[in-house]
């Protein structure tokens, strides 16, 4: 929506803001924290958060400020926001299956639900979003559709990240088919494959 773009531009100018908020969204275990760590490590020399195979490892928004990405003539300063994975269900028994005690699992489930709510509330406050998807899974889920739909409705620039290219059964083409209206970048956050393509896209599409 042109009015919102204009409003955001004015807001940035008059607040004297030099950096943007870049949010990493997606379902649990899509590789958001692995990607946030990669970006942060490449441009600040430090990682951001702990990575785990157990879902909902990130249960509160993790922030890294003043990350400056430079590609060619483009330079963008951003606050990197690693969001908790968005889900519609959280069952503490799933964490018990990963070896946690019942009490630990219940605590983690409670924190996970709060994290999801926090991530949803942030949908209105990011300037640009990376929507991270696991390219070995079906991308046409209600979580992905709802995240993208709400960002689109607010005219927030979206880059869809087809992650986990390093896995044999990855099918990034399915993500392109599901979201043809958006710029899709295929990467492996784990190995760093094609991460430069993502940096170019961030510099090009962020605002």
């Amino acid at each position: 929506m042109p009015f919102r773009r204009l409003f955001n531009w004015f807001r940035r100018i008059f607040r004297g803001r030099k950096s943007i908020s870049l949010g990493l969204y997606g379902p649990p275990n899509a590789g958001k924290t692995t990607l946030a760590n990669k970006i942060s490590l490449d441009w600040t020399g430090e990682e951001m958060g702990k990575v785990s195979e157990i879902p909902h490892e990130t249960r509160a928004v993790q922030k890294k400020e003043h990350v400056v990405v430079k590609t060619g003539a483009n330079k963008i300063e951003m606050n990197l926001l690693d969001m908790p994975g968005i889900a519609t269900k959280v069952d503490y028994k799933e964490f018990v299956e990963h070896g946690m005690s019942k009490e630990e699992a219940q605590k983690r489930a409670k924190e996970a639900t709060s994290g999801v709510i926090e991530a949803i509330k942030w949908l209105e406050n990011v300037d640009t979003a990376l929507v991270v998807m696991d390219s070995t899974r079906d991308p046409y889920t209600q979580v992905n559709i709802t995240i993208i739909g709400n960002l689109e409705a607010r005219d927030i620039p979206i880059i869809v990240v087809a992650n986990k290219l390093d896995l044999e059964d990855s099918k990034p083409g399915k993500i392109r088919e599901a979201f043809p209206q958006h710029h899709v970048v295929e990467i492996s956050a784990k190995t760093g494959k094609d991460i430069d393509v993502l940096y170019d896209a961030i510099a090009k599409y962020s605002r």
């Binding site: 968005i86 519609t88 959280v90 639900t113 709060s114 999801v116 709510i117 949803i120 509330k121 949908l123 209600q142 979580v143 709802t146 739909g149 709400n150 689109e152 409705a153």
Partner: peptide, 14 residues
């Protein structure tokens, strides 16, 4: 609507 889906997910988590 997308807004309703977002609110549904928030209320569900709560």
């Amino acid at each position: 609507s997308y807004e309703e889906r977002k609110k549904l997910m928030e209320a569900d988590m709560a």
